[in-house]
Design a protein around this nucleic acid. Sequence first.
DNA 1: CGCTTTTGACCAGCGC
DNA 2: GCGCTGGTCAAAAGCG
Length: 416
Amino acid sequence: MNSINGHQEMDFFSEENNKKPQALDLKTPWLSIKPEDLTMSTGLQLMTRNMGSDQSTVDDGSSPNEEEKEGRSHELEAMQAELGKMNEENQRLRVMLNQVTNNYTTLKSHLLALMQQRDQRSGHEVVQRQFMDSGPAVVTDADELSHSSTAGGSQEIRSTSPSNNVEVASIGEEKLSPNKNNEQAQEATMRKARVSVRARSEAPMITDGCQWRKYGQKMAKGNPCPRAYYRCTMATGCPVRKQVQRCADDRSILTTTYEGTHNHPLPPAAMAMASTTSAAASMLLSGSMSSTDGLMNANFLARTILPSSSSMATISASAPFPTVTLDLTHSNPLQLQRSPATVPASLPNIFGQPVHNQSKFSGLQITQDQLHHPPSLDVSAATAAITADPNFTAALAAAISSIIGGSHPTTKATSS
DNA sequence: CGCTTTTGACCAGCGC
DNA sequence: GCGCTGGTCAAAAGCG
């Protein structure tokens, strides 16, 4: 079953599918576009005008043949000229897109730098924060040193033991550069954070677009249904794991708990769930997040996933790991039982995942379907996953929805 | 033959 | 220290 899904989804990596839709060139430059730059409307207006003139020649059936031929040749020249103009505009837009991409990269690095500064100011607080609900898991320097000797042996750096995750972050603080340390700390803590998704499904596992391999099954205490353990097999060494278990009270409810961050490109079908879980994990792990912020963000995330549903998100304070639970059981169950190819239709193409060789903008890829159905909801969803910082989210959401949403300047210009 | 699933064993953390 | 529990490993079996 999984292998079938996986094979289908691997097709998304084909060169053909990796080509960005032309529409992306027009829609994604949202950071630094001035209204006067949006001259795409010129071409459309010309097209409209042409259609009008075309119509007039058809209507004017009384005109002599010579005139008609002459008129058509003029028309042809005009259209060729317009085509040339549009090509130029296309080139300009491509340049603008590159600029926007650069802007985005710069902005992102700024944000990361700021977050790193903040994390450095708060020292161990962030790491300790991840474990404040898990009892006596506060890491002391003595602990780190005693463990570091064992970690240096044949053990893997990416350990499956929670304590070792802390260890990696802490050792890095002493021995590695601050940037690398922060990355590792973040990776280690991201591995700890969990996102639980509750959904009604008769299938043994919800199709989230990823390729999973089952590596274990256990009877969990207090639940007659076994808990299955899966590991992501889309790339060797991908640390992402998930647990799948049916609810003891209502066996139609499937609880899927995700842990970790993918270290490889994801097919669009997998982007939705992976990004959602990653964004939720980011919320959990963002150092500035107060408990109320977290709850607010969690519910925002839930609305992001299924905007029309009454889905709820909660953050567990009692679980051994910080966990966000997205309860989708009140939404249409069919939304999570679709075939892999249609999963993105129910879940927004949002991003937030450190996807290698793939811009985070890939989450904003606009499909042919989306061209016919403006992706305003998807875009607002995307902003939710960019970062857990509510201020950043609000600013970007406003910017994106003002440009890509119904009030797109180009649209206005065309319609006027 | 290669990949996935199954399943018992093993390990670490935690509470008593 | 012991037992319980959750999580992982790895050999064997199953499958296409």
